[in-house]
Design a protein around this nucleic acid. Sequence first.
DNA 1: GAATTAATTGAACGTTCGTTTTATTATTGC
DNA 2: GCAATAATAAAACGAACGTTCAATTAATTC
Lengths: 216, 216
Amino acid sequence: MARTTGSDGEKTEAAVREAAVSLIARLGYEAMSMRQLAAEVGVQAAALYRYFPTKEDLLFTLMREHMEGLIEAWNAARPVVADPATRLAAYVENHIAFHIERRHSTHVSNMELRSLSHDRLTQILKLRTTYEKELRAILRDGAEAGVFDVEDTGLTAMALIQMMTGVIVWFRPGERLSISEVTATYLSMTMRLVGAKAHGATTSYSAGRANDAVAL
Amino acid sequence: MARTTGSDGEKTEAAVREAAVSLIARLGYEAMSMRQLAAEVGVQAAALYRYFPTKEDLLFTLMREHMEGLIEAWNAARPVVADPATRLAAYVENHIAFHIERRHSTHVSNMELRSLSHDRLTQILKLRTTYEKELRAILRDGAEAGVFDVEDTGLTAMALIQMMTGVIVWFRPGERLSISEVTATYLSMTMRLVGAKAHGATTSYSAGRANDAVAL
DNA sequence: GAATTAATTGAACGTTCGTTTTATTATTGC
DNA sequence: GCAATAATAAAACGAACGTTCAATTAATTC
């Protein structure tokens, strides 16, 4: 056999990306074989090489686009001029929304870094640093303005990002908590963690919810 | 060739465990080959099968012992009777100390869960839940006693654990911050996050440090 | 010091891996 | 409708994988 009826390069490539993100997130990059991926797409393994020259190229493409998407989402969501607390709230909301929406590619981008070549790892880490610097700047501004109580900007930024990203480990849509409930709780935890002085909009985010256990 | 002079089963097994933790943490379980591990130990691949019947048995053993060690460490460190804030402080200190000390095995236990069979995954998750329940109990007690301000016990516990465990991602001993400085900062962030009412020993943990960027 | 047991090697097994090559068919442009 | 191009299948490549087995030597036991 050869070219199949109705075959379309763009559609196949999109299907490959989608299946790859899902498979790598579930099985891990090393554990996923190209034949497995091809089967998921409904194509022979050789066909994958028309779109991605190597398996690692595929991984790198998925990761780069994830990171670029994250930065773009923040650039679209960031307040132009605002006080640090409002900016921090926007950062938290954007971060959680993006990561819940793109759970699988987040998993891939966070877990499979060690499968990249040195050069490509550097590129991804550069994008990650770009994104994280935004949070550090907010924390620094808030600390300097005296509206945050932050001991160590860098450490606090890392702690917050780990905390927020961790949401994808246990959160499942449609279970006990809605996205907005989770976001609200993380927002109030964040504001307390950075010692935000309660003034106006900031405190309104901490809409209460009852104590309860979280599903694993 | 056959048995080598000075060969000792106990020593070889210990060397295998040590090398395996290090290699799996660096390369990932799937990416590490048994031949690579054997070479690191200075032995042929076949010799490994005297100690671990399969590669997955090796992984499971490393993970189980890590989790059991974590629970044992907490049982040894936990205050018998104490107020929630003191218990929480002990939990945070034990968690960070243990995870910094056992970075590699923490990495393995957190990242390679998907390589376990269903049964073994269940066993590891059970140990994990046992450990996490301790934190939830502390938070619940604190909330009920009115010394913590926690919206959602389960969610807060997950957030705290993610935040604290994340320390192994960026912390390197001997760099900018000492272990005790990191612990102190995380402790004060934790206390603020749970809204601990400042009384006595609790606040003394937040010894100040200057703002600065954290090295990646 | 002979018999037993412990520890390891070296070679091999069948499988699967990522990838390449070649041929073949569908689609597109004129 | 014919040439050019796009998209795929089928088969094969060598390499690497986890694992097994038989042989061999060191250490221990009596």
